[in-house]
């Protein structure tokens, strides 16, 4: 071993965007192919990032390969900017990407990296949404071998997946998939849209923004291009349904904080043991409060 070797004294040696340029170039080539083959899980040699596999390393590699001076980045987890994991990723981007701004406002962002949510506010052509993906392949529930799954995807053969959905209906009278709802892109590939709730799936359809999905541990990148068909798998007589937020009287529940009745809600247990609902998208909630000129409803 080399006992005399001097270690670097600090972290300043890391390059812009952490990844070396060869790694970025590979991710960039992969992203372009992913756009050309909508919904296809394009393989790439995922690099190790300094946070755990499963913590958003796939999304982060995509974000770091895209980001440059002039970008404004927003990072959310469960819809919130100040969730621990979002804070951690945002701090990392700030550390490794000088001259890149970060924001908590959806409308100010050019790049949005998200885990488990699509922002409530409609995206624009000037934005790119990067979703973090733990399990990229919707066929894994019916076929464990990746080699066989690749053939099924290539042929657009989803009969076994549809059979699985049908069995659900027979057993439960309902499709039981709660999130990661299999969705067909541009009439061919069925994707796992990442663990977004069903509520967010319709947002993939004909979105104005490019949506990129990065699975770091499974080493795949796939895309839903702007203005593309995105159809959740369903049957004519059992349609796709989003989460139900109606109360026992049949009324749509409202956010306890901003009063929204058109957002995905987090269900919370109050200090008194009562259940309350609040917007999961914290920026959407804050914007609504600001627009109404209201202060946050203090419930201390």
């Amino acid at each position: 071993m080399n006992p005399g070797y001097e270690l670097p004294q600090n972290e300043a040696g890391y390059s812009f965007g952490f990844l070396d340029e060869y790694a970025k170039r590979e991710v960039r080539r992969t992203v372009l192919k992913a756009i050309c083959i909508p919904g296809y899980q394009t393989p790439y040699a995922s690099r190790e990032m300094p946070m755990g596999r499963g913590f958003g390393t796939g999304g982060l590699q995509v974000t770091l390969s895209l980001v440059g001076p002039g970008d404004t980045v927003k990072v959310i987890d469960q819809g919130a900017d100040d969730s621990v994991n979002a804070v951690n990723l945002r701090k990392f981007i700030e550390l490794t990407c000088p001259h890149v701004d970060t924001t908590e406002h959806t409308r100010d962002a050019t790049l949005i990296q998200s885990r488990h949510r699509v922002p409530e506010m409609p995206l624009t052509e000037a934005q790119v949404l990067v979703l973090q993906v733990p399990y990229p392949d919707p066929l894994v529930v019916v076929e464990p071998s990746e080699a066989r799954r690749k053939t099924m995807h290539g042929e657009g053969d989803y009969s076994r997946l549809l059979t699985k959905l049908y069995e659900d209906i027979v057993q439960f009278d309902e499709i039981t998939i709660s999130h990661r709802y299999p969705t067909r892109i541009n009439g061919h590939y069925v994707i796992d849209p990442s663990p977004i709730p069903r509520y967010d799936v319709p947002q993939l359809h004909q979105n104005r923004a490019l949506i990129l999905l990065g699975a770091g541990r499974e080493k795949k990148i796939y895309a839903v291009p702007p203005y593309s068909q995105a159809d959740p798998l369903a049957f004519d007589d059992v349609p796709f349904r989003t989460e139900d937020f109606t109360d026992e009287y049949g009324r749509r529940r409202a956010c306890a904080r901003c009063g929204a009745i058109d957002s995905f809600l987090d269900e919370l247990i109050d200090d008194d043991g009562a259940r309350i609902w609040q917007c999961s998208d914290s920026d959407y909630c804050n914007e609504r409060l600001a627009a109404a000129g209201k202060q946050e409803v203090a419930r201390a």
Partner: peptide, 22 residues
């Protein structure tokens, strides 16, 4: 493998909300 095992410690309340709905 260890990254993925540990990622289960992260918040999953949006997906859990979805699970409860189903």
């Amino acid at each position: 493998s260890m990254g993925f095992a540990n990622h289960y410690k992260m918040p999953h309340y949006v997906t859990f909300q979805s699970d409860m709905d189903r």
